[in-house]
């Protein structure tokens, strides 16, 4: 088996116009592992996923997926890479004009010449894996948030990807759905022999299922380690994040150039 990590990110920086989102990020996703990227909202987690998927181009540095530098791929190479990648979007991003069945069959119909009978069996198998075989006739508008997330999960594993990316898979789920999705992520990763990246800020659920965790703050990796190491970490940022404390190094206020007093004085003048 190839021992080279599936995803390698080296000195990755990215800016939107003049706003720096990521600066000098280094991280590695080994094959077969589930790795979480955690951090507060707006710290650059989803941007990292989009850079891995080639939807954005880095300002500097590189992302290697399966040995290929993503931003150097032409559109054909990029699409070839994406065919071996699955992504679960924050709210599922199901195609609302298609049934659950057609959503899961979408990639198979687009990328393969499989006969419809075989696609039928494969779709039901994927839906069975996420516990929704009986829901294949429903439309996305008839699904609950948790069910939609699971259908999206079935859709993203349609072509047995080598890399799975999850963008906030636990956001807005009730405790039961949350636990089901967590277990599914782990089980599917092991069953497919894939590698998974979870971008999340749900600490407790993630610590149960992941092998390794990176913490991102203000566009930098500030801590990393296994679930056990993170739980026992004394790093102030990690401690504040894991235990959900209001006081700590993460500021409550959005950064501003002017002091509040100065702003009031300016208004008065």
């Amino acid at each position: 088996m190839n021992q080279e990590p599936l995803v390698q990110i080296r000195d990755l920086s990215f800016s939107y116009d003049n706003r720096k989102i990521l600066s000098g990020v280094n991280l590695t996703i080994p094959r077969g592992k589930v790795v979480a990227i955690m951090g507060s909202s707006g710290c650059g987690k989803t941007t990292t996923l989009r850079l891995i998927g080639g939807q954005l181009k880095p300002t500097s540095g590189e992302v290697r997926v399966n040995g290929q530098v993503v931003h150097e791929l032409d559109s054909e190479g990029l699409y070839a890479m994406r065919r071996r990648t699955g992504m679960l979007f924050q709210f599922g991003a199901l195609f609302t004009d298609m049934s659950v069945y057609d959503n899961v069959a979408f990639q198979m119909r687009e990328h393969t010449d499989l006969p419809e009978a075989l696609i039928h069996d494969l779709v039901l198998m994927k839906l069975h894996a996420v516990g929704l075989r009986g829901a294949h006739k429903l439309m996305p508008s008839e699904l609950s948030g948790g069910m939609a997330r699971r259908v999206a999960l079935a859709r993203s594993i349609a072509l047995d990807p080598m890399l799975m990316m999850y963008d906030e898979p636990f956001a807005g789920l009730d405790p039961i759905s949350l636990s089901i999705v967590g277990v599914l992520i782990r089980k599917l990763n092991d069953a497919l022999g894939a590698s998974s990246i979870i971008v999340t800020h749900d600490v407790q659920e993630s610590l149960k299922i992941v092998d390794y965790i990176y913490f991102v703050s203000e566009g930098r990796i500030v801590a990393e380690g296994t679930a056990e190491e993170i739980r026992n970490s004394k790093t102030p940022y990690v401690h504040q994040f894991v235990w959900g404390e209001a006081d700590g190094p993460v500021p409550f206020q959005y950064p501003t150039h002017n002091a509040y007093g100065d702003e009031l004085l300016q208004k008065a003048a």
């Binding site: 939807q55 994406r82 992504m87 979007f89 991003a93 195609f95 609302t96 979408f106 990639q107 687009e110």
Partner: peptide, 15 residues
């Protein structure tokens, strides 16, 4: 479709 990330999802599915 754009606002609900359906177009992004399609791109990520190599379509």
């Amino acid at each position: 479709m754009k606002a609900t990330e359906q177009l992004s999802a399609m791109e990520m599915m190599a379509v």
